[in-house]
Amino acid sequence: MCLAVPMKVLEIDGHRARCNALDQERWADLMLMPEDGVTVGDYVVIHLGFVQRTVPETEALESIRLFKDILDELPDGQS
């Protein structure tokens, strides 16, 4: 099973996007997206290093909030 945390696009460099979520940054490949399909500020879902799709901001922020709630419930040292 895969869990996908939506990530915010911070920078686009050619066919790669630098993204951030929950204080983690990742570079992801944009090859599977239309050329103008992703812009800085968009939220995206990444799988196996590739941006799979964009996510509406309200949906992304709600998902991130739920993930934060889950992490907050874990005992110290398990996140």
Rank of each mutant, 00 (worst) to 15 (best):
M33W: 09
I64V: 13
E11A: 04
T54G: 02
I70A: 11
L3I: 14
P34Y: 14
L32I: 02
F67T: 14
V9L: 00
Q52C: 03
T54I: 11
E25R: 05
L32H: 08
D42T: 04
A60L: 02
Y43L: 07
M1S: 09
L22T: 09
L66M: 10
M31H: 11
D23M: 12
L66H: 11
A28E: 09
L61K: 14
D29H: 14
G14Q: 09
A60K: 12
G77I: 09
P34K: 12
R53Q: 13
N20R: 15
A21F: 05
L71M: 05
I70Y: 09
P6T: 02
V55Y: 00
D36Y: 05
L3Y: 09
I12C: 04
A21Y: 03
T58S: 13
R65F: 02
V38Q: 04
E25K: 07
L71D: 06
M7C: 12
D13L: 07
D72E: 10
E35W: 03
L30N: 07
K8Y: 04
H47I: 15
L61E: 13
Q52L: 07
R65Y: 04
M33A: 05
A17S: 10
V51S: 06
I70M: 07
E35G: 02
M33F: 02
L10A: 04
D69K: 12
H47R: 15
L66T: 04
L48V: 03
L3C: 08
C19G: 03
D23C: 09
C19Q: 01
L71Q: 11
E57D: 10
R53C: 09
D13I: 10
T58D: 15
E62Y: 13
G77T: 09
C19N: 05
I64L: 14
P75N: 09
G14A: 06
M33D: 00
L61D: 01
K68Y: 01
T39R: 15
P34W: 14
D72G: 11
G14F: 11
I64T: 01
Q24T: 13
K8T: 12
E57P: 06
I46D: 04
R65E: 13
H15P: 01
A28N: 09
K8P: 00
K68N: 08
E35D: 12
D76G: 09
M7H: 06
G77V: 11
E59A: 08
V44C: 05
L32K: 10
R53E: 13
V38W: 07
K68E: 15
D72K: 15
E73M: 14
Y43I: 10
N20I: 14
L30T: 05
M7V: 08
K8C: 10
T39N: 12
P56Q: 03
E59Y: 02
C2H: 07
L22Q: 10
E57K: 15
L10E: 12
V51F: 03
L61V: 06
G49W: 05
E62A: 15
L48D: 05
L74Y: 15
I64N: 04
K8W: 03
E35P: 00
A4G: 01
D72V: 02
D76R: 15
T54M: 04
R65V: 04
R53W: 01
A28G: 08
G41S: 13
R65T: 12
Y43C: 06
D29M: 03
L32A: 08
H47Y: 10
D13R: 11
E11H: 09
F67G: 00
V9Y: 01
C19M: 13
E25S: 14
L22S: 07
V9Q: 03
R16I: 13
R18W: 06
L22P: 01
G37P: 00
V5G: 02
